[in-house]
Simulated scan of single mutants.
Amino acid sequence: MTTWQSFAAAAPSLAAHVHRRFTSGESHVLATLRRDGSPRVSGSEVSFRDDGRLYIGSMLHAVKARDLQRDGRFALHAYPGIEDGGEGDAKLAGVASEITDPESLSRLEVDPASHLFHLDIGEAVYTWVADNTLFTESWHDGGAWVRFARPDNGPVERTVLG
């Protein structure tokens, strides 16, 4: 897993697209794991901070916070509205870690009656359509940054970008 800043350095244009999608709307879809292992989806806001990390917050003792405290694995889907003018679809997955140090919470100006998690990124995916071609770019920590193109609903073309 890696920080947002490290991901952005490894796949800069992909990170720019993903960042744009996550900052174009306020509420996104966060998937966490319940105690029994089944999925839970919740609305969540994200925060890109100057320290090169991506964060999500939660109300104190919310079920999504308890899920992440127990098992930090997450998937996050940028606001999937169709009103975005065809700007594409962005998703992230990785591991969330709660920030509990009072000094860090104070520096980050976090309400002590809430939770704050930084997100380490393991996977990023951006999908869009242009000129009758479906494109998907994906990046995996420790793996390649790859673009898949499927022009005119035909065979998939794979290009390694980094």
Rank of each mutant, 00 (worst) to 15 (best):
V63F: 08
H140I: 05
F135V: 02
L30I: 15
N153W: 08
H115L: 05
L68E: 11
S13G: 09
G162H: 02
R34W: 12
P80T: 14
S6K: 11
G88A: 13
M59C: 08
H17K: 12
V63S: 13
L54W: 09
L134C: 06
T23G: 09
T136Y: 01
Q5K: 15
T2A: 07
G94V: 06
P80N: 07
A93E: 09
R70G: 12
L30Q: 01
I121W: 01
G25E: 15
G86I: 09
A78E: 08
L116V: 10
T32D: 03
A62Q: 10
N132V: 10
H77R: 15
A62P: 04
S58P: 04
S27K: 06
A124D: 05
D141L: 00
E103T: 08
F22H: 09
D141E: 10
E137R: 03
R70Y: 15
D141C: 02
G143S: 09
A15Y: 00
Y126V: 04
H140G: 01
S38A: 15
A124F: 04
L33Y: 08
S106P: 01
A31K: 14
G154E: 11
W128F: 07
H77N: 14
V160G: 00
I121D: 00
L116T: 00
L92G: 02
R40V: 15
A124Q: 02
E98G: 01
Q69F: 12
W4F: 02
V129M: 10
A65G: 13
D51Q: 12
L92T: 10
V110S: 08
T127I: 06
A9Q: 06
D89V: 12
L108H: 07
L54V: 09
Q69T: 13
E123Q: 03
E137D: 09
K91V: 13
S58A: 15
P155G: 14
E87L: 07
F148P: 00
E109S: 10
W145G: 00
S38G: 15
S24F: 02
V29A: 09
A78H: 11
G154S: 04
S58F: 11
S44E: 14
D71K: 14
Y79M: 10
V46A: 05
E45M: 12
R70N: 14
